[in-house]
């Protein structure tokens, strides 16, 4: 019987030397329940799948932890067929809470990229990290803390390029609750700008 803990990938196993894994990008959006991260994961996946035309699998963690505790959505993107549906070694981790950052940092691959809410995550485990104050931007620039998730989508787009800007715009229009389209689109634009700034700043 083999019983390894999934949250700590087995280093003897998958590595990016495996040809099948080259065309595979794994993102985890994590934080606290109520931050809209599962919805953000669905929006990211929908943009990738239905507009960019790549293959994509989105999974999530349900259960008691989805209520207030750590919450996460995983998105695996590839232009080829996706076999294993969950992340094996994350290429990117978005953490909007200290707890999520602490819990999932170890799932990030060696050269993976950590993006945190710089206001909520004060102790970062690596220098290879981009900090953007998503929640503060949402509150002060857009006037609604609920759009921090959409700002982070914009940043992910600008930083990783795995999803198209046009795709995200289309999906935000589709998915935003009626009457909030403008705010959400503004949030997305803000995220794109902040993401680009951060990327230039860190020169990855």
């Amino acid at each position: 019987m083999s019983m390894t803990n999934h949250s700590k990938p087995d280093k003897t196993g998958a590595s990016h030397n495996d040809s099948e894994l080259i065309d595979r990008y794994e993102i985890r959006l994590s934080g606290s329940g109520g931050q809209g991260l599962i919805l953000a994961g669905v929006m990211l996946a929908e943009a990738v799948a239905t507009i960019d035309g790549k293959n994509c699998v989105q999974t999530q963690s349900y259960g008691p932890e989805a209520r207030g505790g750590a919450s996460r959505a995983d998105v695996v993107i590839s232009s080829g067929e996706i076999y294993y549906p969950k992340p094996m070694q994350l290429d990117m981790l978005l953490a909007l809470s200290q707890e999520a950052c602490d819990n999932y940092y170890h799932d990030l691959r060696e050269n993976g990229l950590l993006i945190v809410d710089s206001h909520l995550v004060t102790q970062v485990p690596t220098t290879r990290c981009i900090g953007i104050p998503f929640s503060q931007l949402a509150r002060h620039e857009i006037g609604n803390t609920m759009v921090a998730n959409v700002i982070s989508l914009g940043a992910i787009c600008a930083i990783s390029g795995v999803v198209s800007e046009a795709g995200l715009i289309e999906v935000v229009k589709r998915r935003a609750p009626r009457g909030t389209e403008e705010k959400n689109l503004a949030a997305l634009q803000l995220g794109l700008v902040e993401g680009k700034k951060a990327k230039d700043r860190i020169r990855l």
């Binding site: 669905v42 929908e46 990738v48 799948a49 293959n55 994509c56 989105q58 996706i82 549906p85």
Partner: peptide
């Protein structure tokens, strides 16, 4: 997992 997973 299959029931809740989203895929293209």
């Amino acid at each position: 997992v299959l029931g809740h997973m989203r895929e293209k």
